[in-house]
Design a protein around this nucleic acid. Structure first.
Length: 567
RNA sequence: UGGGGCGUCGCCAAGUAGGUAAGGCACGGGGUUUUGGUCCCCGCAUUCGUGGGUUCGAGUCCUACCGCCCCAGCCA
């Protein structure tokens, strides 16, 4: 090992990983390329809601700026009015804020640059680097050539700057219908890179823009707009996804040929793929408009609004984005990692409460009728600062139906005929009998006895009990609706292979339990509060909740080693 | 058959003047535990897409293959 490694942190050392982008920034700072400046931007098109894949980009761009003492802009790439809506810009802003990032006073819109963009286009024309083409869309496509054959020049390619200027001004003035003409960059119709075969810069669209109204009837294309917007904002590192690698030469061409105030470096990284879901705007939009899900914030969706409603925390998502890393390799991240990040965060902060999803009645035969004990329950076993509350205990209780088995398998810790278990923080109880439905033979009720000497859940004689069950008092429990979510798709990558991705939708992705029972203290929790139903999972009080009918979304189940062992 | 990228453990991902494969998730085993949760130990790539070559030594250099992704929107 070289001696100069002394100050370098170890691979396991603190701080964010040195992914290749951070290394580029390090190098730029070392060489003084930007004078120490680091300025990034998150540039969504407002044509849909943000999802967990965007979170990766947001964390990267805003995180990078923060780490290097720089800034990150929010910029709406709103150059295609046909697809964009204000509803989306509002939702995007709310989601970025919720994730925990702040663009301060730097929320920009590409549409704010329409005037400058237009002036730059005239300059390109004057320099003989752009021309107006009369060809139809089909002709342009045909003349572009193929991946292996060069394209052929447009008959309009030889027009003089004066002609082009006149035509372009008339395009802008609204003299031509949609599709009649376009402005094209004059680069190289024979380029092996298809992107450089005289790309379209402006198209005519007599469409109202959500911000500029009907001020324009020509709109600039992404390739022309994005690089200039970056330059105008003083961006240093323009980070985008892999599919734009082919566009980078065009990004550079535009900036090289215009008197812009700088030349940002475009850097591409691999976008996120998550198993058992889809992260393509096109597909998400389809699920929403075809009502496969209830809306953009359906808790099964990987949208930020969806997982927020599901009970995911911004902290967990940011942690996830750090853990997956940044690279240029195509990837498919295991959903289990996202769930792990959530559990880790929630385990630390969620109050533990009791709820019974599928009730089975238990009568404590030797417990006095009419007696009620208020048992003090801590809200967290390892963090007393979360406080405690009183939970009523009485002769008639409900336990989880799954916690009783009449003919238990080996290593069964829970209740069974003759078995003794602990009711959490209450008493040891022993099952002494079962009551059945005479018609179906189904067990409808359990008879138990409790050991009064085990109050609080401890036995003084040192006898141990294998299982600890959660419970609610029948007379005091309140009703609640519980929604259990599972993966949206049954296939790891529903987008792969032939066939429609919707063929892989999981029919059991949502299970509603309309009549679960919750301990009384839970009725006072605020919407959005995240709790752990002991032994069942983490839950979040849904916005649909009313005091009369609380609705809980299960954020994620607890790890279940019994389920694993019994497999 | 053109051009641009990428290939390190089941899934992510470190590795960068060539020096003898980090870490996380998942998984398996053990301990603690009033959640079969948490927590704590321990295990988990003789090998870096493949074949050659250079070298005392190669994931890192050379070379030839193979595989996967992206590009022919007046979408972004």
């Amino acid at each position: 090992m070289a001696a100069h490694d002394a100050t370098v942190t170890t691979p396991t050392g603190p701080g964010p990983a040195r992914d290749f982008i951070r290394q580029i920034v390090d190098e730029d700072n070392r060489t003084g390329k930007w004078g120490g400046r680091v300025h990034t931007r998150f540039p969504p098109e407002p044509n849909g809601y943000l999802h967990i894949g965007h979170a990766k980009s947001i964390c990267l761009n805003f995180g990078l700026a923060k780490e290097f003492g720089g800034q990150c802009n929010l910029r709406f790439d709103d150059t295609n009015p046909a697809k964009e809506e204000v509803e989306y810009v509002d939702a995007i802003q709310a989601d970025v804020r919720w994730l925990g990032f702040d663009w301060e006073d730097r929320c920009f819109y590409a549409s704010n640059y329409f005037g400058k963009l237009y002036a730059f286009a005239e300059q390109l024309i004057e320099k003989g680097l752009a021309y107006v083409d009369d060809q139809s869309q089909e002709e342009i496509r045909a003349n572009r050539g193929t991946l292996t054959e060069p394209g052929t020049d447009s008959p309009c390619r030889g027009r003089t700057p004066a002609e082009n200027l006149d035509l372009f001004r008339r395009m802008r003035a609204g003299e031509f219908p949609d599709g009649a003409k376009v402005l094209r960059a004059k680069i190289d119709m024979k380029s092996p890179n298809v992107v450089l075969r005289d790309p379209v810069l402006y198209r005519i669209k007599h469409v109202e823009h959500h911000r500029t109204g009907d001020a324009w009837c020509i709109y600039p294309m992404y390739d022309y707009t994005h690089c200039i917007s970056d330059a105008l904002e003083g961006i240093t590192h323009s980070i985008c996804s892999l599919e734009f690698e082919n566009n980078r030469p065009l990004y550079d061409w535009v900036l090289d040929n215009l008197p812009v105030p700088g030349h940002p470096q475009q850097i591409e990284f691999a976008r996120l793929n998550l198993s058992y879901t889809v992260l393509s705007k096109r597909k998400l939009i389809q699920l929403v408009t075809e009502k496969v899900v209830s809306g953009w914030d359906d808790p099964r969706l990987p949208t930020l609004s969806g997982i927020r409603r599901r009970g995911y925390t911004p902290e967990a998502i940011r942690d996830f984005c750090e853990r997956i890393g940044i690279s240029k390799a195509e990837n498919m991240v295991d959903m289990a990692l996202l769930e792990h990040c959530l559990r880790e965060d929630l385990n630390r902060r969620a109050k533990r409460v009791m709820a019974v999803l599928r009730p089975l009645k238990v009568i404590i035969e030797n417990y006095p009728e009419g007696q009620v004990e208020e048992i003090d329950f801590p809200y967290h076993p390892e963090d007393a600062s979360l406080g405690s509350r009183k939970v009523p205990f009485s002769r008639e209780l409900y336990i989880e139906r799954d916690d009783f088995q009449e003919n238990p398998p080996k290593k069964w810790f829970r209740l069974a005929p003759g078995a003794e278990v602990r009711l959490r923080y209450a008493y040891y109880v022993t099952c002494t009998g079962v009551v059945r439905d005479p018609a179906t033979g189904e067990v409808t009720e359990l008879r138990c006895t409790h050991d009064p000497a085990t109050k609080g859940g401890w036995s003084s004689d040192g006898r141990k009990v294998k299982g600890t069950l959660h419970w609610v008092s029948a007379a005091h429990a309140k009703p609640a609706e519980v929604r259990l979510y599972d993966r949206l798709f049954t296939k790891e990558n529903p987008s792969e292979g032939k066939g429609d991705f919707k063929d892989w939708l999981n029919p059991d992705s949502l299970e509603i339990i309309p009549d679960a029972l919750i301990e009384p203290s839970l009725a006072d929790f605020p919407v959005g509060e995240r709790v752990q139903f002991e032994r069942l999972g983490y839950f979040c009080l849904d916005p649909d909740s009313t005091p009369a009918k609380p609705v809980f979304n299960r954020s994620v189940a607890l790890k279940d080693s019994w389920a694993k062992a019994s497999r």
